[in-house]
């Protein structure tokens, strides 16, 4: 039992830093780059991915002994697609603004490598508890990386961080200087450059520590 507990904790912590999907494994680049123009979009994306990841990991883990090898991938895809559709409907109903902004990137969670990779590498081999911990860790790690990227990009592009629910309110506002009005940061260029520099920094930190 004690051994079991450590592996639950381990698989949760692994996703946060050591095996962080974005920063260390370079998985799921497409949403990472596309939705980080604003913090709210990034958080919405993160929440959707966490939801889908938890559900698919649990389902796959529950049926892991019934899976036939060559139909495995098809089964994973089916499970993920079903939960993504539910997440998409939910967002359309309760967060219409965000749903319009994220557009096709919500359905594209289906082909997000993180989810299918976790189903294959973790959930189809481990019990429910470990799979759940793994999903939470990976999901939070993904959301964390997205949040950092989105904060940098939104602040540098618009000089402020704005949330919109029924009405919009500003979280942080920087002084009105040209440095904080780099429109390029909101464009694809900004996404690639920021993530590239961020990965470089992470690499620098980890090599120093080792």
């Amino acid at each position: 039992m004690a051994e079991n507990q450590t592996s639950v904790g381990k698989s949760f912590l692994a996703g946060l830093w050591d095996e962080n999907p974005v920063l260390r494994l370079i998985l799921g680049m497409c949403p990472t780059l596309a939705v980080t123009t604003s913090l709210q979009a990034a958080l919405t994306m993160g929440a959707s991915v966490i939801f889908v990841l938890i559900c698919s990991n649990l389902v796959v883990s529950a049926m892991r002994n019934l899976l036939k090898p060559h139909l495995r991938i098809l089964m994973f895809t089916l499970t993920i697609a079903a939960f993504v559709t539910i997440a998409d409907l939910f967002l359309k109903a309760y967060q219409p603004e965000m749903s319009a902004k994220l557009g096709p990137y919500i359905p594209l969670i289906i082909v997000n490598c993180i989810i299918i990779c976790r189903a294959e590498a973790c959930a189809s081999k481990n019990g429910l508890l470990v799979s759940l911990a793994d999903a939470l860790g990976m999901g939070l790690g993904f959301t964390g990386a997205l949040t950092v990227l989105a904060v940098i990009r939104e602040l540098l592009a618009t000089g402020q961080i704005v949330f919109t629910f029924s009405r919009s309110f500003t979280l942080i506002r920087l002084p009105d200087v040209p440095l904080f009005r780099m429109a390029g940061m909101a464009m694809p260029v900004g996404a690639f450059l920021t993530l590239g520099l961020m990965l470089g920094l992470v690499k620098l930190l980890t090599t120093k520590r080792a």
Binding site: M63, L66, L67, K68, L71, L74, M75, L78, T79, A82, T85, I86, L89, F90, K92, A93, Y94, P96
Partner: peptide, 29 residues
């Protein structure tokens, strides 16, 4: 393939329920 067929059925029902519950709200939005 029984697992695939059965789970397709379950997911189909799940999606239909989610759609039925949320569709009016989406339309209203």
């Amino acid at each position: 393939s029984w697992l695939l067929l059965v789970s397709s059925l379950i997911f189909g029902v799940l999606l239909a329920m989610a759609d039925a519950a949320l569709a009016p709200r989406i339309k209203r939005n």
